[in-house]
Design a protein around this nucleic acid. Structure first.
Lengths: 305, 305
DNA sequence: ATACCACTTTGTCCTAGACAAACCAAATTA
DNA sequence: TAATTTGGTTTGTCTAGGACAAAGTGGTAT
């Protein structure tokens, strides 16, 4: 009784946990009638666990491109069904390695998780590892997080280990020989750097020299960085929740202000629908495509006709 | 003219950049008369670069434990002086390696930066590296960021590379032989994981088995993690901006609910002033101390009197 | 020194309204 | 048929000013 007296989360905690802004949480309450948190003595919102869980699921769906009006009014069951559905396409195809990894995490076997990641990397090589292991693992972890099937700390753990495995492999990857120099980052608002790390590994393993600026680099800072670092390529990662026009605006500005020899690579959910791109912007729909793009760039550099 | 027409940042951008909340920015305006942003046609705040820069400096000072009332009213010059002053104590003592690293970053020589970090690590070993290189480097980078002497992207770059170097060294460190198992994380609100990474490397190099949950793990999740992972030690990192009582509350809850054999290590600025700790909580004031603590724990485990 | 007290500072939350940007779909043009 | 324009709806974020408790400060009494 005493312990469970207030497991209810504050609006700040919920916002941090789900990635949905405080203002947004309040306005959803007004507009869609969900969530409807309890109020404490001071009149402040207190979100019970079920609502937080449902908000997590919503957050995941929103990140996949759903619109709030279409999903916020749905029940918890319908939402979970949607999450599973969206995933099942690829996931069922190769449950092999990924499920083993998640099981390791669930058993709390951190060391084996790490070891497995290394082994699989060794066995599959960078490209295969990313396509068949890293990406599905992230996808499935994200779904399980959204459905509450996986403790949050396990999601942290898996993310952390995967990040390390990718970094380590990047460090080990062949030293740049003829490869172009690539600067990688995300724009402000995009906090997920995993796609970036995967891209980095892939590019490195193809011989490129990569420089990662981490996440959320403002456009003007990116311009400065390009001035100083003189890359031949800039790679950006966008998630689905980024507004199309702001993505376009950023790409246009970069395209205008960067030296014209430079190629812009844009990847992630946030750019897959785009048409009519600014000049020199190449959209990378699949990770596989990165290798091809790199090859093209390399050839263009060798024959600067 | 056209280009510089609106370099002014929105409140959202400023909040992200400086780490000062939107509400806080608005209330400072009311209370202290700073910042006073311009307004766009819609009446929204637009912060000019000078004010953002000054806010960055303020943010840094606040993180060091200053109170807003004492520093917000100061001029930009006074603030910069304060930042420098606080740092000068240790920094001047060993400008050796650190300055070289920063110069590498400023020349945009990412590869050499990385190489240098590796070399220094090799030469100094984990403990020395952390004390003499990593910590001062972070400190100085932070100051330079606050004063606007260093582009933000360079700060990103240095942080990224340092993180990788620490991870890599951790991975390489001796496999756990007799060492206790340690879970590392920060509590919600604390987004800086560098201290954690340094602690992890140190513990690993002393033979402990470390499991990092990354940053911002909620207390209940941490309890779950301990149930599953069965560590002998939990290490937490706190920055100065965490409220004393919330730190105490968290430590107390953990102390109550975790098995009594378990030791809690608390490090960082946020815990250095604390007295009257809950049982089994050990405050780590200096990185050096970690080794001693670990030794004590190890002995306690071997002789369970 | 340490504990208690009152006083001041400070961050975060609240409501309710407003508005443009983002999106969708139907109509129009090439 | 495909691309563009137009109009209507959805949606996130901003604003103001008030409120309040938790955090910190300093003086007094143990």
């Amino acid at each position: 009784m005493n312990k469970a007296a207030e497991p209810n989360a504050t609006i700040d905690e919920v916002a941090r946990d789900t990635g949905i802004g405080k203002d947004t949480l309040r306005v959803w309450e007004r507009r869609y009638g969900f969530p409807i948190p309890h109020r404490n003595a001071r009149g402040e919102r207190r979100y019970p666990p079920e609502q937080v869980s449902r908000l997590r699921t919503l957050s995941r769906l929103l990140n996949r491109g759903w619109r709030p009006g279409a999903v916020v009014p749905l029940s918890a069951e319908e939402l979970n069904a949607l999450v599973e559905q969206g995933a099942s396409g690829r996931e069922a195809a190769r449950p092999s390695a990924v499920n083993g990894l998640i099981e390791n995490a669930q058993r709390g076997d951190s060391r084996r998780l790490q070891q497995s990641l290394q082994d699989i990397m060794q066995q599959q090589g960078p490209l295969q590892f990313i396509l068949d292991t890293a990406a599905p693992l992230l996808e499935q972890t994200g779904n399980a997080w959204a459905n509450g099937q996986l403790s949050i700390y396990m999601e942290h753990l898996i993310t952390d280990h995967l990040g390390r495995a990718l970094h380590q492999a990047s460090a080990r990857a062949a030293k740049p020989s003829p490869g172009p120099r690539v600067v990688l980052t995300t724009l402000p608002g995009e906090r997920h750097g995993m796609g970036l790390m995967m891209a980095e590994l892939l590019l490195r393993s193809e011989g490129a020299e990569t420089i990662s600026l981490g996440v959320e680099t403002p456009v003007d800072q990116l311009l400065d960085a390009c001035r100083d670092l003189q890359p031949q390529v800039v790679a950006l990662s966008f998630s689905a929740l980024q507004k199309r026009t702001s993505v376009m605006a950023a790409l246009r500005e970069l395209s205008e202000k960067l030296p014209s020899e430079l190629v812009l690579l844009a990847g992630g959910e946030g750019v897959s629908h785009l048409r009519k791109l600014p000049p020199r912007v190449r959209v990378v729909h699949q990770m596989e495509q990165l290798g091809t793009e790199l090859e093209a760039i390399r050839q263009a550099l060798e024959q600067p006709s």
